[in-house]
């Protein structure tokens, strides 16, 4: 019997070191997959669709998805922190429209913008408050606060569905229509927001805490992260970014239609975020993921517009692509029933 013991003790400690070199598709992240798909589709379009691979069209493409991308950056920060912000579109519409109205009433550009931004941040802070302090689920909080903000905006703050950009404010229009060194300004703003988002997430303590909180909220709390402040800030960021997206939208057509609230824009935002591989269960993903997702959706949409594909068919194509992406992801990383976290939506 002692021999058995001795033999066993020789093997002691080696079990954890053992581990086959894993490789191949299993290790390919969704982000890489999306980038690859984007490149593939982009190349196909460049060859097959006339008028696609021109500088002007690429710039149009970029411009048309920049609002989506800007919202996506805000959403990504919140989703990494294990949240969800469905109130973005309401903030986009109401805060931007209110700003336009205030400027139109003669408050001046800076004051108008500041008030709009202030309101947006207040909405975000309220979201964070309701989620972290009262304890209402994020999905529901932001759904309700979106409805509330839209309602208050339409009821008390704005005159009609559509708010027009005040005249003689070229700076405002430039946000949507201008160019900087030949690059459309919406794209510049998108890039700037993405860069800020990226830097905050990867280079600052707050960003690290967002990841920590999204990964394991209770562990973050026990480690000494002030999770409430963190939650409030991340929703405030998301709202502020939504306000910026609203200004870009308003600038491009010199007006903003609050009816965008009832469109499926927010779902498109979620689409690009998730497509890029940001996990809705938090802690995973990066701004690069959003760029990848935005690029894929942008390419698809642009090509389909050029091919004059009907809008509903576009939706179907878009959806099937997403479904394919998440199905493939699930096949590559199958759910382990014994270790899966409860409540992953």
């Amino acid at each position: 019997m002692t021999e058995v013991v001795a033999m066993a003790s020789v093997k002691d400690g080696s079990s954890t070191a053992r581990g086959p070199a894993t490789f191949a598709l299993k290790n390919v992240g969704q982000e890489t997959l999306v980038v690859a798909t984007t490149v593939l589709i982009f190349s196909l379009c460049a060859i097959l669709v006339s008028g696609f691979f021109t500088l002007a069209n690429i710039s149009t493409l970029a411009r048309s998805v920049s609002v989506l991308g800007i919202l996506g950056v805000g959403m990504t920060v919140v989703v990494i922190g294990r949240g969800l912000d469905l109130s973005q579109v309401a903030v986009l519409a109401i805060c931007a429209a209110w700003s336009l109205k205030l400027i139109g009433l003669g408050y001046g550009l800076a004051a108008g913008l500041a008030m709009g931004l202030g309101f947006a941040i207040a909405v975000g802070a309220f979201n964070g408050f309701a989620i972290s302090i009262i304890g209402i689920p994020a999905l529901f909080t932001t759904l309700a606060s979106g409805t509330l903000v839209y309602g208050i905006g339409r009821w008390l703050m704005l005159d009609g569905i559509i708010t027009y950009a005040p005249e003689n404010q070229p700076l405002l229009l430039a946000l949507g229509q201008g160019e900087l060194l030949g690059i459309p300004i919406p794209l510049v703003i998108f890039a700037a927001v993405a860069l800020v988002g990226h830097l905050v997430l990867s280079r600052t303590t707050a960003g690290r805490f967002v990841y920590a909180f999204g990964d394991n909220a209770e562990a973050a709390r026990l480690t000494g992260v002030s999770v409430r402040v963190l939650t409030i800030s991340q929703y405030a960021f998301s709202s502020a970014v939504a306000f910026l997206a609203g200004l870009v939208t308003a600038g491009s057509v010199a007006s903003i239609n609050t009816n965008v609230f009832s469109s499926s824009l927010i779902f498109d935002v979620l689409l690009i975020v998730v497509l890029g591989g940001v996990s809705l269960s938090g802690g995973r993903g990066s701004i690069a993921s959003v760029l990848a997702g935005t690029a894929l959706i942008g390419t698809l949409l642009n090509a389909m517009i050029l091919l004059d594909v009907q809008g509903d068919v576009q939706n179907i194509v878009k959806s099937v692509v997403l479904l394919g992406a998440i199905t493939l992801d699930r096949k590559l990383h199958p759910r382990d029933e014994e270790t899966a976290r409860q409540g992953d939506l």
Binding site: T204, T205, R208, F209, D215, T223, V225, G283
Partner: peptide, 30 residues
């Protein structure tokens, strides 16, 4: 497993998060 560590992070990142959460280890940038 439930509330001890951050599974998406590396060893040094886990420890560093602990450091960052203290008054003396606090800094804006990583």
């Amino acid at each position: 497993k439930l509330n001890g560590f951050f599974e998406t992070m590396r060893i040094d990142e886990n420890i560093y998060v602990g450091r960052l959460a203290t008054p003396e280890g606090r800094s804006t940038l990583l």
